[in-house]
Design a binder for these strands. Sequence first.
DNA 1: GTCTATACCACGATAGAC
DNA 2: GTCTATCGTGGTATAGAC
Lengths: 191, 191
Amino acid sequence: MENETRQEEIIRVAAKLFKEKGYSAVTMRDLATTMNMKAASLYNHISSKQEILEKIIMRIARKFSVGMTAVKSSNDSCIVKLKKIIALHVEVSSQNIYGMAALNHDWMHLEAQLGPYKKLRSDYENDFKEILKEGIAAGEISPIKPDVMMFSILTTLRSLYLWIPKKEVIHLEELTNNLSKILINGIIKEN
Amino acid sequence: MENETRQEEIIRVAAKLFKEKGYSAVTMRDLATTMNMKAASLYNHISSKQEILEKIIMRIARKFSVGMTAVKSSNDSCIVKLKKIIALHVEVSSQNIYGMAALNHDWMHLEAQLGPYKKLRSDYENDFKEILKEGIAAGEISPIKPDVMMFSILTTLRSLYLWIPKKEVIHLEELTNNLSKILINGIIKEN
DNA sequence: GTCTATACCACGATAGAC
DNA sequence: GTCTATCGTGGTATAGAC
């Protein structure tokens, strides 16, 4: 965290507090206390509480969009594309375990950026579903409702931030492999 | 909703608001406006905002505990036990789509009931993991880390409330069957 | 860049008339 | 059982000294 600007530090600490109590329950006084400052001093670095939320959420949302674009444009099979999406979520979640909480649960408190956020999320879900549909058409994936499949896989991936920090030592590659097996092959033992 | 007491009505409406904005962001004035009352009048039916949260969360948490106890004490195979747990989540979630949001995201704002809630949740997760471990020992389930399996399945089940209301017509039995296939057999097509 | 002081407003909750 | 009025607290944010 060297060479981190004071604004970046505030945003990082705020994300941690938002994960613990949610955006609405965290006050500027809470944030200031954690930063060893007075609340008024925060405003030399950020213009509002809302701005902090916007930076936390939109930064991560854009990473997912960029990642999905890369996966879409590849020539991989659908199963490989899915594995790449799983790896994308493990990577982004592990690098933003606090911010992911705000992305998942505090997006409704966005004001000016609410529309742009919703657009990114809905585009992401459509791309995801499209990959599943292609997989079904190509005979790679079981012909179960793509909606239910996407919901099942994506909610697991979106909740990774709750769970990654609990691992003592985080073997991200191992986690990615285990998740791929479970989400793609299921948990039943094949004989 | 006939024969519903005024207190039950307040709790039901509050759960809906909590799902939309989170416990902290919903004010007693918001709740009163939605109920076509003044905020002060709410206090003739409930003693505090905190009491509303407690009733919403603890009621549902106890349903899951009761359901898990029934599954545990059966003589079913582990796979059948898992299917029963999936059905339990579909049932409880569909009957409490608003309350599930508070259960998942506002439990940290519990005060006196925080400890009891955490105990119920942790017991539930331990029972769930135990069933997976038995399944592995019995050769029914793939020998992947039970932690990762439980995380993957349980986060999907815990997020059902986000998704059930989006279905135009809810065929709960079909949803249960599709989810069982996806979570247990995976999405890959077997040839 | 941080501080003290404070403006202004909304919060949960209570008192007491009707 | 609902209302008006209000209490005490604490919210975001600004002004201006240092």
